[in-house]
């Protein structure tokens, strides 16, 4: 349950299918997306529109991230796909298998071995390095949308750096709950210019965006926008002087690996309401357990 054997993952991924172009999308589309990506990297945090294509799965399942992955994948790349931190959920397994079959790329669940990591909701706990690219699946790319429904108006606000309203939401949080209760999709300022929605990652992961050695790409399939945080870019979470940004902390440790500094999921394990806390990042949890546990118990 708690992670797949990397070899098993490669086997389950299936063989290369004939009849598809490399990584499913046609070359013109990939070129168009790459042009968009170059612009996004040149203007950190700026949302670049792109002509999103129909993908063979519904919007909301990661079509934006998949199009970006398809555009940047090379034959030598090693792909890892995470969904809510886990490598073994339906969405992660399906997308990994999709690229194994349409591009024939190697896949892995191990963060350090991957060169392209497509993710939904989490940034891996294992620190990323400069040879890696992280691709986020983004549902709502516009951080101003909750307060300003008009697209023309939000674009003008971005152009003019008119970001006062972003703090209105944080103010409301403190007024209602006594602290900033926004815990995911927590808005950030990228490179002292654009305010960006870092997709629905928990705010626990926001500090990992700051000065990351890995390139971060964000793709929104339904909204047809892509944006990027280049390596070693300053990413600052919005806050108030007397209510500074802070990440979640747990009093418990992971029930499997004992980690006390990773992002923990709370599981209800029986009808009596007993709780266990486990790492949301299954690969990180596995890596920490491997030295202590025999290999064959893994995955049962």
């Amino acid at each position: 349950m708690n992670g797949l054997n990397p070899n098993a993952a490669s086997q389950a991924a299936g063989a290369l299918e004939s009849g598809y172009n490399f990584a499913y999308l046609d070359e013109q589309t990939k070129r168009m997306i790459r042009r968009g990506l170059l612009k996004a990297v040149a203007v950190p945090g700026y949302q670049v529109p792109f002509g999103g294509r129909e993908m063979p799965l519904p919007y909301g399942w990661g079509t934006g991230g998949m199009q970006l992955s398809a555009a940047i994948l090379g034959a030598d790349d090693v792909l890892k796909v995470i969904d809510q931190g886990a490598d073994d959920t339906t969405n992660a397994v399906s997308i990994r298998r999709f690229f194994a079959r349409t591009a024939g790329v190697a896949t892995t669940t191990r963060t350090p071995e991957a060169t392209v990591i497509q993710t939904r909701h989490r940034i891996p706990e294992t620190p990323l390095h400069g040879e890696q690219i992280l691709v986020f699946q983004v549902p709502i790319p516009e951080p101003l949308r909750f307060i300003e429904p008009s697209e023309t108006e939000t674009r003008t606000m971005h152009a003019l750096g008119d970001y006062g309203v972003m703090h209105v939401k944080l103010y409301e949080d403190i007024a209602t709950f006594g602290h900033i209760a926004t815990s995911y999709a927590y808005p950030v300022t990228v490179d002292e210019r654009y305010v960006m929605d870092p997709s629905p990652i928990p705010k626990f992961d926001n500090p990992k965006l700051h000065m990351s050695p890995a390139l971060m790409l964000f793709g929104a399939g339904r909204e047809k926008r892509l944006y990027a945080v280049p390596p070693f870019t300053e990413v600052v979470s919005l806050d108030f002087a007397d209510h500074p940004f802070a990440v979640q902390r747990w009093e418990e440790n992971c029930a499997f690996c004992g980690s006390h500094d990773s992002y923990l999921d709370e599981l209800i394990v029986d009808d009596a309401g007993s709780k266990r806390f486990v790492c949301s990042d299954t690969d990180y949890c596995m890596q920490r357990r491997e030295p202590f546990e025999p290999q064959q118990e893994v995955g049962q």
């Binding site: 703090h167 209105v168 939401k169 007024a175 806050d239 007397d242």
Partner: peptide, 27 residues
């Protein structure tokens, strides 16, 4: 007015747009 946010946030919005980043002062 912004009908979806509290009276305090409505009053504070201009100050926040001008760069006031102190909740106590806004309050």
């Amino acid at each position: 007015l912004r009908m979806g946010v509290s009276a305090g946030a409505n009053i504070g919005e201009r100050l926040m747009a001008q760069g006031v980043r102190h909740y106590g002062q806004l309050r």
